[in-house]
Design a protein around this nucleic acid. Structure first.
Lengths: 140, 140
DNA sequence: AATTATTTGCAAATATGTCGCAATTTGTGC
DNA sequence: GCACAAATTGCGACATATTTGCAAATAATT
């Protein structure tokens, strides 16, 4: 398995971009804390990073396919994309706000492929969110 | 089939809310024009409604499960939820920005149910977005 | 039609996202 | 490791999006 930071560096290099301290920080923060809202990400990146830099970094990362946005609950969040972590989807507990990653499911994935193919839609990516109440909360 | 507006009224009433002119307007606009960004919705609701009221209405509707947000491309949009229109998902063409509704698929739906049930997650709702290039655009 | 509680519109406050530019940092070649 | 050119950052100023307090207007009830 390749060092994630090395993979990041080479992805950036392939596009003539360099791996700077802020970009590294954003990456490791996402690595450590999973899907975050921009506000959380800015906050978690520490006071050393400027809002604008975080936004710029995320915009770049999104273009290079390093991160992806998800709509979870009220605000969108960003997380590392499939090249940097296993492909997965989310369940969102509307009670406690917890986000649970669901394991990859081949049946599901293939079905989605098929549905797109049916109408000659060339699928590149997809996202699934299940909303409901998690085991923990429904136990109450 | 129940009158949608009646269904709206009773949903509101069940929660001690009343069906006002602005709320009616937002509802019928969504009915007529499908998934809209807030800006579009505000615009389409006409100058008679204040921005703030539209936001408040959407927040309320979301809590009552009358509308749901979708992340389509960069901005989120709102549309009526499954109780008010047929359950469906979307494909989003990253080229032309078109949104294509995909027909309901039982295999897909059941699989999602099963996956949630597996971890005792009580699923209430879900949303799927497939991003890619539509038939029209890839023909070029 | 009068009463009371809810909801609206308005104006102002916050929050979120973007931009230009001087100062700093990065990658590169020596 | 140092100097240079190019890329990137942080800052402050904007632009846009969303929320809030409150007096006035509207809805449900009697």
């Amino acid at each position: 398995m390749i060092e994630p930071l090395e993979q990041l560096r080479s992805t950036l290099q392939d596009h003539g971009q360099s791996l700077t301290r802020p970009r590294k920080k954003v990456f490791t923060t996402l690595q450590a804390k999973g899907p975050l809202t921009m506000a959380e990400l800015i906050q978690a990146s520490g006071t050393s990073l400027d809002r604008a830099s975080v936004y710029r970094t995320i915009k770049l990362y999104e273009q290079l396919g390093i991160v992806q946005r998800l709509q979870i609950g009220w605000k969108y969040r960003v997380e590392l994309s499939n090249s940097f972590q296993h492909h997965h989807h989310h369940m969102y507990c509307t009670q406690c706000g917890n986000v649970i990653a669901m394991p990859e499911d081949t049946v599901l994935e293939e079905r989605l492929q098929a549905l797109a193919a049916n109408i000659s839609f060339s699928a590149q990516d997809h996202q699934i969110e299940i909303r409901g109440i998690c085991a923990n909360c429904s136990r109450t």
